[in-house]
Write a protein that binds this DNA or RNA. Structure first.
Lengths: 145, 145
DNA sequence: TATGAATATATCGTGCACGATAAAAAAAGT
DNA sequence: ACTTTTTTTATCGTGCACGATATATTCATA
């Protein structure tokens, strides 16, 4: 029987999976200086743009399950980066607000993506390819959501 | 101060991360029928192509740490999918061999990638885009390894 | 006004995934 | 032949990530 479709090199899923982990790995030393993990950094990027979001709002933005977000936010709260407050308007909701410490990290984090992209410049990965990659991934994400 | 480079929509890392998890999620119901998790399925794809690999050989193929692979293989051995054997030629190495059960799963798994790709056909994601995506990801992987 | 449906968060359990470290075996160097 | 270095796997600890389930609150319906 033919099994070509089961060959690892024939998969699209595997390079996405491998690239994702390698990117996270590449971020790790840069984020370690800020006392952050990669998922924590993603949460902060969301909150730096839009403070006072609900747990569900952050989960939707990051396309993560709320049962992943809740423990993540609790750890960040323990680190003094944000505060969790039950909404008085709708008691089902928990509103997440940055602390001064969480806000101030934004300044230090500003160079992180620049440093990360430095690893790609000067390579044979063109800006056009990166742009096209992102657009195709966004289409794929829409299909899979 | 300008923080555009910290906007989530400006990142290439986030769509890769999100797409990876959504792809894994999409596989989950298909693999559940076979009693497999996604990482276990990746291991089997490697072994179906080349049996009798070392732990390190599988780790290299999947670009995973050996301390991720070892517990994964132990769980698969517990499920009777493979056997782990210390090499007599080099006792540092553990050789992984498929059992009959592990080999037979290949037949059932043959339709998994086909079913997964069905979700993309008929969409506005062309085959050319998927091919280009894969090539760019492979370049990125080479840079990050 | 009461009931059922929907929504939001939290907990539990399990499976990864990786940094750090340890131990054993093989290879390299003197 | 002995010592040092390198390689391979394993363990520990921690941080996710998700399926399933539970609880509380709000919304929709009768």
């Amino acid at each position: 029987m033919e099994y070509d479709q089961l060959k690892l090199d024939q998969q699209i899923c595997f390079p996405v999976y491998a690239a994702s982990r390698l990117i996270t790995k590449a971020y790790q030393p840069l984020l370690e200086n800020l006392g952050l993990t990669y998922p924590q950094y993603l949460v902060l990027m969301v909150l730096w743009e839009t403070d006072s979001l609900s747990v569900n709002g952050i989960a939707e933005r990051l396309i993560l399950n709320t049962n992943t977000i809740t423990p993540l936010l609790k750890r960040m709260e323990a680190h003094g980066l944000l505060e969790r407050q039950r909404s008085s308007e709708d008691e089902r909701r928990v509103i997440i607000k940055l602390t001064d410490k969480g806000t101030e990290l934004r300044h230090k984090a500003a160079e992180v993506p620049i440093r990360l992209m430095e690893g790609f410049s000067g390579s044979d990965l063109s800006q056009n390819e990166i742009t096209a990659l992102k657009e195709t991934l966004l289409k794929m994400i829409e299909l899979l959501k």
